[in-house]
Simulated scan of single mutants.
Amino acid sequence: MRSHSALATAAGALMLVLAVPGSAWAATGQFRYSYQTADGYDAVGFINNPPSRTCIDIQGAGSDGTSAAYAPKNLTDATATVFLERGCAGDVYYSLRPGAGASDRLLVRSVVFS
């Protein structure tokens, strides 16, 4: 009889794990960055509750092939690793802990959250 209750408990635990929504694999909060529009105006972009372990190319950054976003602020609960290149590629990257921001000198085109 004990093996049946242990099996039922294990099955129940597995169902709970499978029932966790996809948002459990997302950072909670907002990632902000500044960029310059095609018209030369400064703008602020943001990503709300970004998915974890997925590379995100930053909108507005580098769409013309030259400019990058700058001054990222990680207001999420996960570590954000920002990259100079699109596609989270290249050797130039920087990690921002939750709640941290960087200066205007830090240029970014993509980001991935832990």
Rank of each mutant, 00 (worst) to 15 (best):
N74G: 01
T37L: 09
E85G: 05
T76G: 03
D77L: 00
M1N: 12
G62P: 06
K73M: 11
Q36I: 15
L75N: 12
N74L: 02
A68K: 15
A80K: 00
I47N: 02
D39S: 15
A11L: 14
A11K: 06
P50Q: 06
Y35A: 07
F46L: 09
L7G: 08
G12H: 08
Y41A: 13
L96G: 01
A26Y: 09
A8Q: 08
D42Y: 11
S95C: 01
C55K: 01
T28S: 13
G60Y: 09
D77A: 02
G29R: 04
S52W: 02
A78N: 13
G60C: 07
G90L: 05
G101V: 02
L75P: 01
T28M: 07
P72A: 06
C88E: 01
S103E: 13
P21L: 01
A19Y: 02
V111P: 00
P98R: 02
F46S: 12
G40Y: 07
G65M: 09
Y35N: 07
C88A: 01
Q59M: 12
N49T: 04
T9L: 15
D104H: 11
F31T: 01
G22F: 10
S63P: 08
L16K: 03
S3P: 08
T66G: 07
R97I: 04
A69Q: 09
L16G: 02
V108E: 08
G29P: 01
Y70N: 09
L96W: 01
P98G: 02
A26V: 00
T9K: 10
V112K: 10
P21D: 09
A100C: 07
I58D: 01
L16T: 05
W25I: 05
V17P: 00
A10Q: 09
S63W: 12
T37F: 12
A6L: 15
K73E: 14
S103N: 13
L84Q: 13
K73Q: 14
W25M: 15
V112Y: 04
V44Y: 07
G22T: 10
V111N: 03
H4Y: 12
M15L: 15
L106A: 06
A24W: 13
A68N: 14
G29W: 02
F31Y: 12
